[in-house]
Simulated scan of single mutants.
Amino acid sequence: MKDQLTLQLIDTHAGGDVSRIVVGGINPLPGATVRAQMEYLQSEADGLRTLLLEEPYGIPEMSVDLIVPATDPQAQAGYIIMEVMGYPIYSGSNTICTATALLESGIVPKKEGSQRFVLESPAGLVQIEARVVDDVVESITCEGLPSYIDTYRASVHVPLLGDVTYSIAYSGGFYALVDATELGFALTLDEENRLAHCAQAIVEAIREEKGFSHYTLGDVGPLPFLHFMGPVEQIDGHFYRSRSATYVHPGVICRSTTGTGTSARLALMHYEGRLQPGDRLETVSLRETCFIGELMEVEQAGAHDVIKNTITGRSHVLAHSDIVVNCDDPLVDCTGLRQLLTPVEQTN
């Protein structure tokens, strides 16, 4: 008897960041909400995440989005985000990829022109606007999480770098925002490895010095992310552009500028008086891919000016595939997977 399990995938990318969308082969998860189902995976069945992000099936630079039935009647589908650092409650690039995969696969019926629908993420309901031209999804605009500045222009001593000035934003996770020019970076592709090492050193130094707490969520763990900011160019009266790079894990600079990184940048530029509602910022990655963030409105929450924002980008479908998980493969650990995955029909 072959000890095999299987699942169905749609591989996509947005701005170069590959998101592996799991559309079939997973048994129903316990939990009354998508957030509760995410917490079940996190505590009881993390093997699915590690299976798809480690060899022989994946690499740490990828992300995984598991499609689940929505628990809120307003939403067409739910999704759970899995990355090498764990389970973020929200991600702009993953949302863009998930929405595209749902449309291109027909799980959410595709309509020519502009269409709106709702997805349920672990962070809550997400409004989606898709633009479809000649039956192709040309762009996805999704809500960014409400974002704000926690710390403005603090300083930390970093071994081998000296004193580094940083700000802290929350945009779905806490981000250190650092001026790339002050550290001698032009944010070009040849700098990718040095950017990753530099970001890791800065994040570790900040973690040793202090932690950060969300005004309603409380402690959400140690600082995970860093966003390098290039100079800002004003394209017209309400449109700006800046080179950017986002660090998410030791050795990993995202191929895109990331949606949450772009939201964090919008929050900082508003805090500094450089962006107002209706203004847009295009962030440009090391690979010349772009996301566009728009500042929609500003609300007061306690001591914080919290910005509502949207992120627009495009995702491309790379592949439709069935993954066969061979549990007798010495490189595969099936611990905790059998209760999740649908078995392949057994053969002699």
Rank of each mutant, 00 (worst) to 15 (best):
P109W: 12
K111G: 02
K111L: 14
E112H: 09
E112Q: 15
G113M: 14
S114L: 12
S114T: 13
Q115G: 10
R116N: 11
R116F: 02
R116P: 11
R116W: 02
V118I: 12
E120V: 02
E120K: 05
E120H: 08
E120M: 10
E120I: 01
S121A: 15
A123G: 12
A123W: 04
A123R: 12
V126C: 00
V126E: 08
V126N: 11
Q127S: 14
Q127L: 14
A130G: 11
V133D: 09
V133Q: 07
D134Y: 00
D134L: 06
D135P: 02
V136F: 07
V137C: 05
V137L: 09
S139R: 01
I140C: 07
I140K: 02
I140N: 04
I140V: 11
T141F: 02
E143T: 03
E143Y: 00
E143M: 06
P146A: 08
P146V: 05
S147H: 01
I149Q: 04
D150P: 00
D150T: 13
D150C: 10
T151M: 02
Y152W: 14
R153C: 06
A154W: 00
H157C: 11
H157E: 10
H157Q: 14
H157P: 06
V158Y: 03
P159F: 15
P159V: 07
L160W: 05
V164N: 04
V164D: 09
V164H: 05
T165C: 10
S167C: 12
S167D: 04
I168R: 09
A169D: 09
A169F: 06
Y170F: 15
Y170V: 03
S171P: 02
S171I: 07
G173S: 14
F174S: 04
A176C: 13
A176S: 14
L177E: 02
D179P: 01
T181C: 03
L183H: 04
L183N: 09
G184D: 12
F185A: 11
F185R: 12
A186Y: 06
A186S: 13
L187W: 01
T188H: 15
T188S: 08
L189Y: 10
L189F: 04
E191H: 11
E191V: 08
E191Q: 14
E191P: 13
E192Q: 15
E192G: 03
E192F: 01
N193I: 01
R194L: 12
R194Q: 14
A196K: 12
C198T: 15
A199Y: 04
A199K: 08
Q200C: 09
A201W: 03
V203Y: 10
V203W: 14
V203H: 08
A205T: 11
